[in-house]
Design a protein around this nucleic acid. Structure first.
Lengths: 344, 344
DNA sequence: ATGCGATCTGAAAACGTTTTCATATATTAT
DNA sequence: ATAATATATGAAAACGTTTTCAGATCGCAT
């Protein structure tokens, strides 16, 4: 690999001059500049980012810590983030906390050790001393999908409560009264807010909450599967089920199908977070769609913004959700033929 | 952030001594060692990886370049990679070429500039001068999911031909004769190998290939959708369709459902690459499953291995696929109740 | 002629590590 | 006692950049 030294030697100038043309500084004579440019070309020189970062504290890396890379939601968020950051020549250092606080803490420290320009994180729980310290120390941070408590930091997420509320209202409107909820973890604001939406809609309709129909999962497929198997064995099962995320919904559907139940006749299902294959499920799944890609885009922009203006007050962006009405709650009469084109 | 200098000062020793205890060198007196350790603890010191990388050419970063992060296949591969690498204290710098050779080349250069310890890449096409040069220069590289031509590099992929062959045999066995294929791009070995499997099975059965039933997509949902719409309008449509990847399959199913066709009565469908929600599709989708996670694991191991032994000859690992028989080809009589537990 | 900005350029310091080299002390063998 | 080794430590160089500092050259007004 050629270094700046090689370039300088070949162009017959000093290191400083090479560095100056590299960084577009003024006061470089045209002749030298072109000699340097030629040398760079000839040697196929690319500046070493590690050295740049060490010296200049100018970093081209942004750290991303997700709680579960396997979730298609985060994959889309990542696309959004990358879309914006790569425009600015920034790249992404990604890691997966796997909903483990220790891993999250380690990765956070690692991001610091890598001198990232900023951090985008979906935290494992709502208070994190490690993250708090990092923010305090002035590292630009954007939090996605959930809120931190007692920490003033840029945040972007979907309107979980109103999304969940929409979902439950939809069920109620279709005549459902015994409505079960498969909640996410209540240590996360997303879990609590979706539950709050459930309570809100039930309250509006004057429906009592049956504690036996309030279940808690962990946002993974497996918990959707096992809890649904139990749910189906209830002496007096619900007529509808609201599932608080996409991964659990997959498990839920698999369990229902395995049990030979019919959706929506035996049990209506509505899921939080849309997926592209929802139309082709049996039956097409009604969901609350989050603008996942857009969440990534906003988070990245917010981060860039903060890197540029570190002292601006923190802000929270809440994006609206959309109800995607399909057949799994009994809304559309016919099974498949009815949908509009929904390939995107 | 505390530096090694601060630690040295606080412990009353030289930089070298601190570095030595940090790296577990012999010949450090117990007393000094514990003083240093105390200082590290007290200052909450973490070595700066950027400086480490610059000086020691010892890197804790591995670059990963995928051609499409949104594909759940790669997400699983990534989990496998991360699983192995994080055991070794290595982290992953990820980027997304989006099936664009220029982007792939840029990212490759960037990985070099970041001084990664190695590179895992799903290349956009089978010959890449940039990648070839990098390999020649001795950077450890592992290629996944497709082969490079004329480049001796560690590779790990699924047995595409035998997988596709299995799929077609299955269709033939169920009585299908007019079998269509929605191929992947033929510039990729995965595309060609899956096509070869199709040809092989058709040949074995003595069936002619109808050129009008050989279609080409780009491994994206959209192409599956649009091409299927055309396919369904054929004067003499096929009775079965083999789709060469998971994303296209989603588009295919969406188009079929939108058209109001029944699977498998009007058209049988079999997909390459299994997905967790296959059981809950309408009808449950028969697929050829690749060991995605395992591909990631193997690639990571191969890379570690090469980092340790740079001169070992290159090797290619081909992993077996599995036929997941469900209802979408007419195999299982009943629709849903029949499956075993398939949640994982 | 002299002084003074403006325009250029290179030497050297700095970033935070690791590693080489030199040196000092303690231990063992002659 | 002396030499030879093993153990322990610090000073300084090195990694590849950017940036500060000090000069050098030039044009131009005094």
């Amino acid at each position: 690999m050629a270094t700046i030294k090689d370039v300088a030697k070949r162009a017959g100038v000093s290191l400083s001059t090479v560095s100056r043309v590299l960084n577009g500084h003024p006061y470089v004579a045209d002749e030298l500049r072109s000699r340097v440019l030629d040398a760079i070309e000839a040697l196929n020189y690319r500046p070493n980012r590690v050295a740049q970062r060490l010296r200049a504290a100018r970093s081209h890396l942004v750290g991303v810590i997700f709680s579960d890379v396997k979730n298609p939601f985060y994959t889309l968020v990542l696309s959004g983030i990358e879309h914006i950051l790569s425009e600015q020549g920034l790249s992404v250092l990604i890691s997966n906390s796997n909903t483990n606080q220790d891993r999250e803490d380690n990765f956070t420290a690692l991001m610091l050790a890598e001198e990232v320009a900023g951090l985008i994180v979906a935290p494992v729980q709502e208070d994190s001393p490690v993250l708090a310290e990092v923010v305090q120390n002035g590292l630009p941070v954007a939090v996605i999908d959930r809120r931190m408590c007692g920490l003033s930091v840029d945040t972007v997420l979907a309107d979980n409560q109103s999304g969940a509320c929409m979902a439950i209202r939809h069920l109620i409107q279709l005549g459902h009264r015994r409505i079960a909820i498969l909640n996410g973890p209540q240590r996360l604001t997303s879990g609590r807010e979706r539950y709050a939406g459930f309570l809100q809609a039930m309250g509006e309709a004057g429906l009592d909450i049956d504690p036996g129909l309030v279940w808690y999962g962990d946002y993974q497929m497996e918990s959707g599967y096992t809890l649904t198997r139990e749910l189906l064995r209830l002496p007096q099962p619900p007529t509808a089920l609201f599932v608080a995320n996409n991964l659990m919904t997959i498990g839920v559907l698999n369990a229902i199908h395995e049990a030979g139940c019919n959706i929506p006749e035996d049990l209506a299902v509505i899921g939080f977070d849309d997926v592209p294959w929802a139309v082709s499920l049996n039956p097409p799944l009604t969901t609350v769609a989050q603008p996942s890609f857009e969440i990534g885009v906003r988070a990245a922009r917010l981060l860039l913004d903060r890197i540029a203006a570190p002292d601006r007050p923190a802000c929270t962006t809440v994006l609206q959700t959309r109800l995607m009405v399909r057949a799994s709650c009994g809304a559309a009469g016919r099974r498949h033929k009815t949908q509009q084109s929904e390939r995107r």
